[in-house]
Amino acid sequence: MRMIAPAALALALVGFGAPGRAQTLQVEYDVTLAGLTLGKADLTSTFEGPKYKMQAGVKLMGLAKLLTGGKGAATAAGTIVGPQPQPASFAITSRSSDDQRTVRMGLASGNVEAVEIVPPIEEKPDRVPVKETDTKGVVDPISALLMPTVSAGTLMDSNNCNRTIPVFDGAARFNVVLSYKETRRAEVPGYRGPVLVCTARYVPVSGHRALRPSTKFMEENKDMSVWLAPLDRQKLLVPLRVSVRTMIGVSVVEASKWAFDDTAGAVPVSGSTQ
């Protein structure tokens, strides 16, 4: 569940529809590990002016569900006014066969104002303390999936891959560093067109357990990538596929359905179908 798990003001505002006219993107994802199906994930993002609301969920199936009982749901809301979203609220509940945890977080202008974690995270000697500065200028893990353009060119400009996403999930602060690899075409039900392929690196900052082998593995992991598909009207990029090598194999979250409902009458993404 923890992997669920990354523009100028004028460009961002021009990219949104008129007030009161909403656009909704619904994406369904298949989740696999080492080639084996683990379950499904879904992401619904609604845009109205510069404001956004997001809902995400994950449900494991088959043996994975039998062994872990794992599932989770998350929500986020905020405003896009620059090169990254500015969330106002974030909440996530993850469940396994023997555990459940809920995190709620309130933010203002990218700064964390309040966090509630139930039950609290267990204290460990090797857990790196979170400093106050670590909670400034951040995005939550769900809002991090919306990537406004950072280039003066088109959404397919390779520079839109080159960014560092500062993420705080309520307990840990880390950076996701993206770099351009290539541009290719992708095809899934509902979308057919170009995607930016970015490599990704995980950089822990605080809240993580420094001595855990998994932390060391992820910090040195060079086998991570994300495919970003464009939403032209919103001037946003959204993950179509995420691949992460784990200690037990490669985990892939890949779109199996892409549906963009634009009630403002926007022109569909170039090369896409709805």
Rank of each mutant, 00 (worst) to 15 (best):
P148C: 06
K65S: 13
G170T: 05
V177N: 12
V244K: 02
V81N: 12
N111R: 09
V177L: 14
R127H: 07
G69F: 00
V188E: 01
G137I: 08
A73Q: 15
V14W: 07
K51H: 13
T135I: 10
V176Q: 11
G110K: 04
V167Y: 01
T273Y: 01
N175P: 08
Q55C: 08
W227Q: 06
I80M: 05
L231Y: 04
T215I: 00
K136C: 08
M156E: 11
P19T: 03
P230I: 07
T37P: 13
G271I: 01
L107Q: 02
M156I: 10
L237T: 01
A144T: 04
R101P: 08
T135Q: 14
S179A: 13
P129Q: 11
V118D: 15
V103M: 04
T154S: 14
V27W: 00
E28R: 14
V31I: 15
L145A: 12
I165W: 05
T215N: 01
Y180A: 08
A108H: 10
R104D: 08
T263D: 04
E116W: 06
P230H: 03
A12N: 00
W227P: 00
S89T: 15
Q274T: 09
T24W: 13
K131M: 15
G57C: 11
A5N: 11
Y180S: 06
A264E: 02
G39E: 09
T32F: 04
S109P: 01
R101V: 10
K216D: 10
A64P: 02
I121Q: 13
T68L: 15
T32N: 05
K71P: 06
Y191V: 06
G110E: 03
K65I: 06
K131N: 14
T44Q: 13
T149R: 03
D169P: 06
G69D: 00
S225V: 04
V197H: 05
G153V: 09
I92Y: 13
S206V: 09
A56W: 01
P125A: 08
R184H: 04
G69I: 01
T93S: 08
I117V: 15
Y29R: 02
E113G: 05
R192T: 10
M218C: 01
G190N: 02
S251N: 12
G137K: 04
V58D: 03
I80E: 02
F168C: 06
M247S: 12
G39W: 11
K235I: 12
R95F: 14
T37R: 15
F174E: 03
R163N: 06
V267K: 14
A171W: 07
Y202T: 04
V226M: 00
A144Q: 03
A152D: 13
V250C: 09
L240A: 05
R127A: 05
R245Q: 14
R192Q: 12
E219N: 09
S272Q: 01
T102D: 05
Y202C: 03
T154F: 06
V128T: 14
A5T: 11
L211W: 09
M224P: 02
M247V: 10
A76S: 15
T154C: 08
E28I: 11
K216Q: 11
